[in-house]
């Protein structure tokens, strides 16, 4: 596959997934104009930015859920909107924020639905499907829940099940829209560890939208900071996360210290007195 030759060449050659001068809008409300983004192959890219900066919108465009009103999203050099839907679904997976577990569905069944793009009317459930589903459940640690109903699970378990479903899709690229929302801190770290593992051990390219800047700085290999629909900075967290950047993007005065655990940048907001005095 073409992906291997381009390993670690961030901007020099064409990456598998990129957005080219896209204008993104819902009805008449324009979220971003002339936005260009490259997702480096084999990276764990995290998109951060304040609320309503367009980060989820960008992710929706990258996963062809939103059609750009101008410009195009390229997957392996082709405009993603013009590719066959199932072919895209075998290359690029998405874990959206809004997902509904059907009433009375078991974990195994839900994960099995991730095999849809590999199936057809005469190829509904192959031994390969069976194997991949088992493997996806094992990787996400939900194998022993296979016969349980999804409605009975805790929020953290449920998120793992959805990730397992996306894994069963077996895509080299996986996009996650705020995968840690509504989870408590332990499960947030749990999900992010799982993502990091998928990235490191399987060489998948991951793109996630995250709210927490410290989580982003800790787990991302490539960070994209968005504000008002524009890319303010991008690069390795250690290179780009500075007090100035955080102030520019989030409007928050802060100190950046070294994370004692990982050596990545850690954002410490300035004390309230210091911030109000400056204002």
């Amino acid at each position: 596959m073409s992906g291997t030759a381009k390993k670690n060449t961030k901007r020099s050659t064409v990456n598998r997934l990129s957005a080219e001068n896209v204008t993104l809008a819902y009805d008449q409300r324009v979220i971003a104009e002339q936005l260009s983004v490259e997702i480096p192959d084999n990276s764990f890219t995290v998109i951060v930015g304040p609320n309503a900066c367009g980060k989820s919108t960008l992710l929706r465009a990258l996963s062809r859920m939103l059609r750009p009103s101008r410009g195009r999203v390229l997957l392996d050099g082709q405009a993603i909107q013009s590719m066959p839907a199932k072919k895209v679904a075998r290359t690029l997976g998405l874990l959206p924020q809004s997902s509904v577990a059907p009433d009375g569905i078991t974990v195994g069944d839900l994960v099995g639905r991730g095999r849809y793009p590999h199936q057809g009317i005469l190829r509904q459930w192959s031994t390969e499907d069976e194997r991949v589903v088992q493997e996806s459940m094992r990787q996400t640690g939900v194998a022993e829940l296979a016969d349980r109903y999804v409605d009975e699970l805790s929020g953290g378990q449920r998120q793992r099940v959805w990730i397992a479903m996306a894994l069963a899709q077996q895509t080299p690229l996986l996009l996650l829209d705020e995968p840690t929302t509504y989870l408590d801190i332990q499960h947030q770290i749990d999900v992010l560890d799982l993502c990091a593992e998928l990235h490191e051990t399987q060489g998948r390219t991951l793109v996630a939208v995250l709210h927490d800047l410290n989580h982003a700085a800790r787990y991302a290999t490539h960070l994209i900071a968005l504000k008002g629909g524009r890319v303010i900075a991008e690069g390795a967290p250690n290179d780009i996360v500075t007090a100035e950047l955080v102030e520019e993007v989030f409007g928050l005065r802060c100190q950046i210290i070294e994370d004692p655990e990982t050596g990545t940048p850690l954002v410490v907001p300035a004390a309230r007195k210091a911030r109000t005095a400056a204002r």
Partner: peptide
């Protein structure tokens, strides 16, 4: 009935179904 499998995917929300390759 030929579209039943796609409809089954749509149960999980439009985004999930779209991500799985359903038009």
């Amino acid at each position: 009935l030929g579209n039943a499998r796609a409809l089954r995917m749509m149960e999980m929300g439009d985004d999930v179904a779209g991500a799985l390759g359903v038009r």
